[in-house]
Each structure stands twice: as C-alpha cells, then as structure tokens.
C-alpha cells in the first residue's frame, strides 16, 4: 500500500538535515587542522628515516588504515569515558563523563584517522620533488626550513592537493558515522526526523542530497585553489 513520497516531509527534512552541516563541517575542520600539520611532520620523519618516529608513524598508519572507522569510533567512545572516569575519580574532579558532548570523541577519532591518511598523502607528494632542488636551495644559502617552505612544500602541495581533496571529502562522509555516538550531524538529524513517521526513504534522499551538495562545493573549492597553486606548471615537467 504505497503512498508515494511524502513531499512536505522531504522538503522539511532537507532543512533539518541541512542544520547538521555546521557540526559536520566543524568536525571536518578540526580534524584537518590537527591532521594536516601532524601528517606532514610524520611524513617528513618517514622520508628522512628519523629513528623511532619513522617506525612509530609506520605502525600508526597500518593500525589506523587497517581498521574500519566505525570500530575506531566504538573503541574511543567506549574506552575514553572509562579512562576519564578513573582519572576524574582519582583527582576528585566533579564531571560526569557521560555528559561530555560526543563531538569531543568525534574530534579525537577523525583527527587521528585523517592524520594516518595524510601521512601517506604527504609522503608520496614530498617524494615527487627531487632531492636536487633541496640541494640547490642549500647551495645558494637557504636553510633547510627556508628550502622546505619556499621550494619543496609549494611543489609537494600541488601534487598532494587532489589527494587532500579526496581525504577531505572522505572525511566529510565518514563523519556520518558519528551518528553511532549520537553526534548531532546530518545523518543523525535526518534519521531522527524520519523515526516519527517512518519516512525513511525521504530522509535518506535528503541525506544523500545534502552530502552531494556539500562535497561538490568542497571539491570545487579545492579545484580553484589547486589551479592557483599550479600556475607554474604550464606543461608537465
């Protein structure tokens, strides 16, 4: 006994889903702010074979990359409160761990998982800039830091951009798993709205639309930025 789509609900819920966008973006941006510098530094430790740190980043990448994000969420969401409550008890801090906003767990999970992805992105991008340019920079009197900032990073960034874009879009989509820890993002909001009248199909269509609009906008932004960055590459070298 199909009644077709409930269009009023479809439109109303679209805006409910849309109201989850700020949380989704906040988690994405915080995760990127954390992961971009850390991923870059750890990629450097891999390329320059820094003892211990190099080994650490390799294991870190294989752990994070080798486990589903939903499992990482469950682990963090289940274990961090336990650790925190022990800690709070010991130091007599009067905070109920179960009142902590789940967004903090989201920050942790997505920051760490994105770092792992970006280590690999930067590692491959940095190795595309030949070592000779670094040597040339040193030979004309630039410090290592200056050489990286002025010569190596601008070129590595151009190579990394498409992959950073992919990582960002994947991150935006992955935050939908935040519903598993009641993060008030796009997916959860739309699903909660759907629960009332069992309008799941409409809700899913709305979620689908919101993500595709959001991701397309982000992709477009990256494309513009990449174009600006790669103005020196008229022909491929």
């Amino acid at each position: 006994m199909s009644e077709g789509l409930n269009y009023t609900f479809l439109i109303d819920t679209f805006f409910i889903a849309l109201s989850g966008v700020p949380i989704t973006l906040l988690v994405t941006i915080v995760a990127l702010l954390f992961a971009l510098p850390l991923g870059f530094l750890l990629a450097l430790t891999r390329i320059n074979q820094v003892p211990i740190l190099n080994w650490f980043s390799r294991i870190y990448v294989s752990f994070v990359r080798g486990t589903p994000i939903i499992i990482q969420i469950f682990i963090v969401y289940a274990s961090v409160p336990l650790i925190l409550s022990l800690f709070f008890e010991k130091y007599n801090i009067n905070i109920n761990v179960y009142n902590i906003n789940p967004i903090w767990y989201a920050f942790i999970v997505f920051s760490f998982s994105t770092t792992a992805i970006l280590i690999e992105v930067f590692r491959s991008a940095l190795s595309t800039v030949n070592k000779g340019q670094l040597e040339a920079a040193q030979s004309v009197g630039l410090s290592n830091f200056q050489a990286y900032r002025r010569i190596v990073i601008p070129q590595a960034l151009v190579v990394a951009m498409p992959n950073i874009c992919t990582a960002t879009v994947n991150l935006i989509k992955a935050t939908s798993l935040g519903y598993a820890m009641s993060l008030q993002e796009i997916t959860l909001k739309a699903k909660v709205a759907a629960n009332v009248g069992y309008n799941y199909v409409e809700a899913y269509i709305d979620i689908f639309l919101v993500y595709i609009i959001l991701c397309s906008l982000v992709e477009y932004g990256f494309k513009l930025y990449e174009k600006r960055l790669r103005r020196y590459k008229y022909v491929s070298a």
């Binding site: 030949n130 000779g132 340019q133 040339a136 920079a137 002025r150 010569i151 070129q155 020196y232 070298a237």
Partner: peptide, 8 residues
C-alpha cells in the same frame, strides 16, 4: 641535472 626550482 640543473636542479632549478620548478615553482620559480
């Protein structure tokens, strides 16, 4: 191999 800075 010249090693020019390709972004300059």
């Amino acid at each position: 191999n010249y090693n020019l800075f390709n972004n300059k």
